[in-house]
Each structure stands twice: as structure tokens, then as C-alpha cells.
């Protein structure tokens, strides 16, 4: 991340139009690195949850986590580029995606009643 920041600062003086791209590249690289680490940590947890019959809940949370991560980075990038309207839309899309993920579990819960 520090490397991306240095590149960005240097590039800002030479050609400022490329700085959002380097910021995006840095963000994506960091995101992939983070997700790999997170997956290594969460995979045993998900496997254990499968054995306990909690896989649906874990799956929901993991998907929501992934969507939130992607949407957060996207909206932050959009804001960096000065596109705050697009950033809001990205957040809205994430919100809708997360809420639509909840519907099957909500139906399942209501059926239990």
C-alpha cells in the first residue's frame, strides 16, 4: 500500500490523469491479498459450520462480507476520482445485493414459525 502511495505521489507530478488507475490497482492488489489471508482464516470456520448445520448462515455472512468489501473499495475509488454520485450508486448496489442475499434465510426463518 505504501508502494502504491509512493507511485501515486510520483505519478501525480508527471501525469495526474493516471493516479486513479494506480490507486485502483493498489486497492485491488491489497484487496486480493487481504481476501486470500481472510479465506485461509475463514475456511476452517466455514467447514466446521457445515458440520454443525450452520453453513447457510456462514455462507450468507461470507457473501455479505465479500460484497461489502468490493462495494466499499469501489465507492472509495469512485470518491478518489471525484465521482461521488457513482460512489453512492456503488454503495446502493451493495446494499441491495446484501439485502437480497437475506431473503432466502428470512423465508426459511419465517417457515420455521
Amino acid at each position: 500500500m505504501l508502494f502504491a502511495l509512493c507511485v501515486n505521489l510520483l505519478l501525480h507530478r508527471v501525469s495526474p490523469e493516471f493516479t486513479p488507475l494506480t490507486a485502483a490497482a493498489g486497492g485491488v492488489l491489497l484487496g486480493v491479498y487481504l481476501l486470500r489471508g481472510l479465506l485461509d482464516a475463514l475456511l476452517p470456520l466455514a467447514q466446521a459450520a457445515q458440520g454443525l448445520g450452520l453453513s447457510a448462515h456462514m455462507e450468507l455472512l461470507l457473501k455479505a462480507l465479500a460484497i461489502a468489501l468490493v462495494c466499499n473499495s469501489t465507492s472509495a475509488l469512485c470518491r478518489d476520482c471525484g465521482e461521488s454520485a457513482l460512489a453512492d450508486k456503488a454503495e446502493l448496489a451493495g446494499k441491495v445485493a446484501i439485502l437480497s442475499l437475506c431473503i432466502p434465510l428470512l423465508v426459511q426463518l419465517l417457515e420455521l414459525f
Binding site: A64, D88, G94, K95, I98, L101
Partner: peptide
């Protein structure tokens, strides 16, 4: 913006 906060809390 906090737009996703409610969705995260709900989930």
C-alpha cells in the same frame, strides 16, 4: 456515506 451500514446490521 453509511449506506451499507443498515444492510450489514440487518444481515
Amino acid at each position: 456515506g453509511g449506506a451499507m451500514a443498515e444492510a450489514c446490521a440487518f444481515v
